[in-house]
Amino acid sequence: MNDRDFTQFPAPGDRLAPCHPSPDTLALLTRRRSATAITMADPGPSQDQLDHLLGIAARVPDHGKLAPWRFIVFQGDARDSFGRTLGEVFAAATPDATEAQIAFETGRFTRAPLVIAVISTVLERHKVPEWEQILSAGAVCQNLLIAASAMGYGAQWLTEWYAFDPQIKATLGLGSGERIAGFVYVGTVTEEPVERPRPQARVDHWTT
């Protein structure tokens, strides 16, 4: 190991280690647990940390170097303004909704100091299969969860109804071939998450 700063992103053409033995990384992955957005509070990541998070998120397998995803970041007052849109769309679609229900929908994005929308931007009729492009966007979401945890923040990957609502998607400016892979909420956790039951991994060994 030399004295280079390995927290900096490499430049094109840099030679990179083929592996990075790290007990700390293995421990993080072994015990990684999403925090619920409702348990998050300020402070959220600084601007430098946000830039680093997004840079890490983009370091995923990407067949064809298409970068088939983009980000929409919600911070500060932008969370309130978008929340008002959520409340209005919900109220229009749910005529019998109570004021409390509308208020809850309006406040969704204020549950955490930072919300990152990961937009899957599939290039249609491309030689790289759409499924591979979609999987790459999913890997972006997972990288965000892991990087946020490594920075000392809690994170949760959610979709919820507004990820699939046509009016919300239009408001966000989604175009042809674009879908919301998820909203990743990031913030300081006020309650430690509790481990949940997890399914036994299904494993087959090919022997022929």
Rank of each mutant, 00 (worst) to 15 (best):
K65R: 11
R84N: 08
W161P: 10
L66A: 00
P113Y: 11
F183K: 07
Y153N: 04
A148C: 07
P113C: 13
W131S: 13
Y153D: 05
F74C: 02
K127C: 00
D80K: 06
G76K: 01
F164R: 03
D24E: 15
K169C: 13
H63L: 04
A181N: 09
P43Q: 08
V118H: 04
I146F: 05
A139W: 11
E192Y: 00
L50N: 05
V189D: 10
L16E: 03
N2G: 15
I102W: 03
T36S: 15
R70K: 15
D42E: 15
V186T: 03
T39D: 15
D96V: 02
D3N: 15
E99A: 02
S176Y: 06
R198L: 06
F6N: 09
K169S: 08
G177T: 07
H63K: 04
S81A: 13
A137R: 10
A148S: 08
D24T: 09
L158K: 13
A92G: 01
R70H: 13
D62L: 02
A67I: 03
R111A: 12
L172K: 12
W161C: 09
T94C: 13
I102A: 02
P43E: 03
A148R: 02
S120N: 15
H63S: 08
H126S: 03
G173T: 11
I56M: 13
E124G: 06
T190H: 06
G107R: 14
L158P: 00
P68W: 01
R196G: 04
V115N: 15
L50D: 09
G154V: 00
R196F: 07
